[in-house]
C-alpha cells in the first residue's frame, strides 16, 4: 500500500476514534451534571410516585453503561431519541435546524474564505505598504469587536437607516426560493464574514510570508516573473497546509459557534435550539447537539489533515 493511503487511513481512523471518545465524554458529562430531569419535567409539586414512574419510563434507573449503549446504538441508526420537554423526535426537529445552520455557514464560508485568501495575498504583495496596513487594521478591528455589536451596528446602518437588507432573519423560510432566503440572511452572513475574516487572512499572510523567505522564491524573482505570479504560483502552493488548517477551524466555528449571531438575528438555526434546551435541562437534545457539533469539528479538522497530506508533493509522489 502506498504511504499516502496508509497515512490517510490512519488519520480517518484516528478521527473516528476521537469521535467515539467524545461521545463517551458527552454522555458522562450530561450524567454528572447536577439536577434531575424528571423533577424539571414534572415541576416542584410532583409526587414521589410520579417522579419514580417517569424515571423508570425514561430509563434513568438503568446502569449508565446500558444507557450509553442504548443511546450510541440509536445514534448509529439515526435515532437521536425524543426530546423530553416536547416529546418530539430530536432527529426530525434538529434536521431542519441543522440544514438552516449549514445554509448560513455555507454562504458565509463561500464569501469569507476566498476573500480572506485574496486579502492575504494582497497584503503580501503590498507588504508593509498602505494596502497591507489597511487590511490588517480593518480585519483586526472587526475581530476585536464582539459579534453581537457588529450585528447591531450592521442592523442599524444597513437595515434600519439604509433599508438595504431586512434587519432580522425572522422572515426566513426554508421552503422559499434561494434569493429570498439569501436576502433574509444577508446581514448575519456579513457579520460572520467579518468575524472569521481576520483570522484566516492573517494566517494566509503569515504562511505566505514565511514561504517568501525560501530560496526558490528568489529563483522565481530572478526569472523576471511579476510579484503576483511569484506569490500565486510559487509561494501559495507551499503554504496550503497551514492555511487549510485555519480555514477549517473557522468553518467549524461557522457551524458551531454562531449561537450569538443566530440569537441576534432571530435565525432558526441549531445554536438557538441548543440554548433553548439547555435552559430546560433537556438532556437528550443537549447530547444530540453536542455530538453533532463534535462531529462537525472533528470532521472538518480531519478534512484539513487530508488536504494537507494531499497538498504535500513528497507524500503524493513518493520517490
Amino acid at each position: 500500500m502506498s504511504p499516502i493511503v496508509t497515512l490517510l487511513a490512519q488519520r480517518i481512523s484516528l478521527g473516528l476514534l476521537l469521535l467515539f471518545l467524545v461521545s463517551i465524554l458527552i454522555f458522562v458529562g450530561t450524567i454528572i451534571l447536577p439536577g434531575d430531569v424528571a423533577q424539571s419535567i414534572l415541576g416542584q409539586s410532583a409526587t414521589p410516585e410520579a417522579l419514580a414512574n417517569l424515571r423508570r419510563d425514561l430509563g434513568l434507573n438503568d446502569p449508565p453503561l446500558t444507557r450509553y449503549i442504548d443511546w450510541a446504538t440509536g445514534v448509529l441508526h439515526g435515532d437521536l431519541g425524543t426530546a423530553l420537554t416536547s416529546g418530539q423526535d430530536i432527529a426530525e426537529s434538529l434536521g431542519s435546524r441543522f440544514r438552516n445552520t449549514l445554509f448560513l455557514a455555507f454562504w458565509a464560508a463561500i464569501i469569507a474564505v476566498p476573500l480572506a485568501v485574496f486579502l492575504g495575498l494582497l497584503a503580501v504583495r503590498y507588504r508593509d505598504r498602505w494596502p497591507d496596513k489597511l487590511i490588517s487594521a480593518v480585519t483586526l478591528a472587526s475581530i476585536s469587536l464582539p459579534e453581537f455589536l457588529i450585528g447591531y451596528l450592521l442592523m442599524f446602518f444597513l437595515g434600519v437607516k439604509l433599508r438595504l437588507f431586512p434587519s432580522t432573519a425572522i422572515g426566513y423560510r426554508a421552503d422559499a426560493d434561494v434569493f429570498t432566503r439569501l436576502e433574509a440572511i444577508a446581514l448575519p452572513v456579513a457579520v460572520l464574514t467579518l468575524v472569521v475574516l481576520a483570522h484566516m487572512m492573517r494566517m494566509t499572510r503569515a504562511a505566505i510570508l514565511n514561504v517568501m523567505q525560501s530560496a526558490y522564491i528568489e529563483t522565481a524573482e530572478l526569472k523576471g516573473l511579476t510579484t503576483f505570479r511569484v506569490i500565486w504560483k510559487h509561494a501559495f502552493p507551499n503554504s496550503i497546509a497551514p492555511i487549510v488548517n485555519v480555514v477549517m477551524l473557522n468553518l467549524a466555528y461557522l457551524v458551531v459557534g454562531v449561537v450569538v449571531v443566530e440569537v441576534v438575528f432571530v435565525y432558526p438555526g441549531m445554536g438557538q435550539y441548543l440554548v433553548d434546551h439547555v435552559s430546560k435541562r433537556d438532556v437528550p437534545v443537549v447530547q444530540a447537539c453536542g455530538l453533532i457539533f463534535a462531529a462537525v469539528y472533528i470532521g472538518l479538522n480531519m478534512l484539513a489533515d487530508v488536504i494537507s497530506i494531499l497538498a504535500n508533493p513528497r507524500l503524493r509522489h513518493p520517490k
Binding site: A215, E218, T219, A220, G224, N238, P313
Partner: peptide, 30 residues
C-alpha cells in the same frame, strides 16, 4: 532582463527548486 538575457544558477539547487511543482514547469517557466 531577468530570466531572459541573464539567468542564475544557485548554490543549493535542492532549495532553489519549488518543491510543489514539476521540474518541467519550472525549467520552461521563464
Amino acid at each position: 532582463l531577468r530570466g531572459a538575457e541573464v539567468t542564475y544558477v544557485a548554490q543549493s539547487a535542492a532549495a532553489a527548486f519549488n518543491p510543489a511543482r514539476k521540474l518541467m514547469e519550472q525549467v520552461t517557466e521563464s
